[in-house]
């Protein structure tokens, strides 16, 4: 019993080490890419930003508007009318500090995380990683590093859009439903929307993006030779990404927002 538990602990530590190692290598390769292979790696980066960021924009926008509506409705139903400033404050606390980065990252995991894991595992099983290596192009430089930074960039940018849409969408609902004036609402919003809150939100989304991309790449490359391992890798990538998101969110909240 204890041995099995210890084995699991060791496996988790090794896995975390691999993740951090992959992220460290990505930063190292990023610097190396300035000297060698910058153009193709940058193309992969742009493509990843396009697929993860631009193509997800619509779903992020709709989700953010709905979340803003739900949060405002809950606040008004609890606090009642005359709580316009509080409404603005609470939506910043909930959306900017917590839900914005978290929900954006969850949507990215569901949409792009699976795609990355499936694509990389398919490439590995099809021998394409070897094809790249045979050309003297390390997969870590050409496939992994641009994907990690592409996803991280997309998550940060999408988080900004999410937060703007949720705060403005919330105001729209509050204004139409309960005639909350903009002055009162915005006063509440800007009284708590400090640079440190914004910075913490963006830093959190950056961490989420980096870890999600690293997990999905790691799982994608972990397959053997059977195509049945592709869906398994995608499932593992999603589950581990979600788990790590909540862990990072909890740790981040403890250290930065308390």
């Amino acid at each position: 019993m204890l041995t099995a538990w210890l084995e699991k602990m060791v496996a988790a530590i090794v896995y975390l080490y691999d993740l951090v190692d992959m992220l460290a290598a990505a930063f190292g390769n990023c610097l190396a890419a300035f000297r060698h292979g910058a153009r193709p790696a940058f193309n992969v980066y742009l493509r990843q930003v396009y697929f993860t960021g631009l193509e997800a924009f619509k779903i992020i926008l709709i989700t953010a508007l709905l979340i803003g509506t739900v949060v405002i409705t809950q606040i008004v139903s609890i606090a009642g009318s005359g709580s316009e400033a509080l409404t603005g404050k609470v939506i910043v606390w909930i959306v900017v500090r917590e839900l914005g980065p978290l929900l954006t990252a969850i949507l990215v995991v569901a949409r792009s995380g699976t795609a990355i894991a499936a694509e990389l595992s398919q490439m590995k099983i099809g021998g394409e990683i070897d094809y790249l290596e045979s050309l003297g192009i390390p997969a870590a430089n050409y496939l992994i590093m641009p994907r990690i930074f592409g996803v991280a960039t997309a998550v940060v940018v999408l988080t900004v859009y999410f937060e703007i849409a949720a705060v403005l969408g919330g105001f729209l609902v509050a204004s139409l439903g309960w005639h909350v004036p903009w002055e009162e609402y915005s006063h509440g919003v800007f009284s708590v929307l400090t640079l440190s809150v914004l910075g913490a939100s963006l830093l959190k989304s950056l961490l989420f993006g980096l870890f999600v991309a690293a997990i999905c790449c790691l799982q994608g490359l972990s397959v053997g030779k059977s195509v049945t391992q592709i869906p398994q890798a995608a499932t593992r990538a999603v589950m581990q990404s979600l788990f790590l998101l909540f862990v990072v969110d909890g740790v981040f909240s403890l250290f930065f927002l308390l």
């Binding site: 292979g37 490439m123 099809g126 021998g127 394409e128 094809y131 790249l132 003297g136 192009i137």
Partner: peptide, 26 residues
């Protein structure tokens, strides 16, 4: 250079991108 039985092309790159990949990289 190795010519693989399948041609050794990368599935998510178009023909031209596959062709010039090593030139652009190296």
């Amino acid at each position: 250079a190795v010519l693989f039985p399948t041609g050794g092309l990368i599935s998510n790159l178009k023909v031209w991108e596959n062709l010039v990949l090593p030139l652009e990289y190296h």
